[in-house]
Design a protein around this nucleic acid. Structure first.
Length: 256
DNA sequence: ATGGTAGGCGACCTA
């Protein structure tokens, strides 16, 4: 099974690239973030003609997550136990969707950005990660993937210039501890070994052309799923050219 | 400290 995760920065404006990506890499299950779309707004026809089903939780203006699968979708769940809210539904629920696809529970996660370390959104981010961790402890016994945009750079190597981020979110100790806590519970981050390198480059200042990026998109796998992982890569070419998302897709291969 | 770009929406917000 080939899994992928991708922050597309609007599914509707990027649908041609999404369909081309799925076809180009023969992807079975794609977790998408920042869909910026309600379920009724999604361009399902093109995906359906390619053999994919879509489960989505979304909002028109920002956030939004989806799972796109050609191996079937069952047991869709939006959000998780004690997931902290930021705003009212559907905004609050537009950050996590879990769908079982071909026997694997795939969670598409859009971790809150945090904005600034002194912003209330930063505390919300830490609360959100703590609640996810608590809920996810109950998912470790099944083949489960926690994939998406984690909005955390776990090490200094995951930032093009740490000095430039010294007053920013993504690199603070509490955020890094919150990310590492999943590994303490038994989750295995499976992209770093096979797919090192950045996954996000800001649109500003030709950051992609100068390779000034961040590694913030990750895939934590439960032990039974991690045991089957055979490889992973970042589709860096997808970030190039006009009309690209600011994130590149990350692909993970699993031998089930 | 600021501003640079992109998307969606509705005349400004988020990343």
């Amino acid at each position: 099974m080939r899994l992928a995760t991708w922050n597309v920065n609007s599914l509707r404006s990027r649908i041609d690239r999404v369909e081309a990506f799925l076809t180009r890499h023969d992807v079975d299950v794609l977790a998408v973030q920042e869909t910026k779309a309600r379920e009724d707004q999604l361009p399902l026809m093109g995906l359906e003609s390619l053999g994919y089903e879509v489960a989505a939780a979304g909002y028109s203006q920002w956030n939004g997550v989806a799972v796109i699968s050609r191996v079937g979708i069952e047991d869709v769940g939006v959000g998780f136990d004690d997931m902290p809210a930021w705003g009212d539904p559907p905004v609050a629920e537009a950050r996590a969707i879990g769908a079982t696809c071909g026997g694997v529970r795939v969670w598409s996660l859009y971790v809150p950005n945090g904005r600034k370390p002194d912003d209330p959104h930063y505390a919300y981010k830490l609360d959100w990660l703590a609640a996810l961790r608590a809920a996810a402890r109950g998912w470790l016994d099944a083949p489960t993937a926690l994939v998406g945009d984690w909005n955390v750079c776990p090490t200094d190597d995951d930032v093009f210039d740490v000095q430039q981020f010294r007053t920013s979110t993504h690199v603070t100790v509490p955020e890094r501890e919150a990310f590492a806590a999943f590994a303490d519970d038994g989750w295995a981050e499976v992209t770093r070994e096979h797919a090192p390198g950045y996954t996000y480059w800001d649109y500003y200042r030709q950051r992609f052309e100068r390779n000034r990026g961040l590694k913030i998109d990750f895939a934590y796998a439960s032990p039974s799923l991690a045991a089957g992982v055979t490889g992973a890569f970042v589709d860096r070419d997808e970030r190039a050219g006009t009309g690209a998302s600011d994130h590149a897709p990350v692909v993970v291969d699993v031998d089930l």
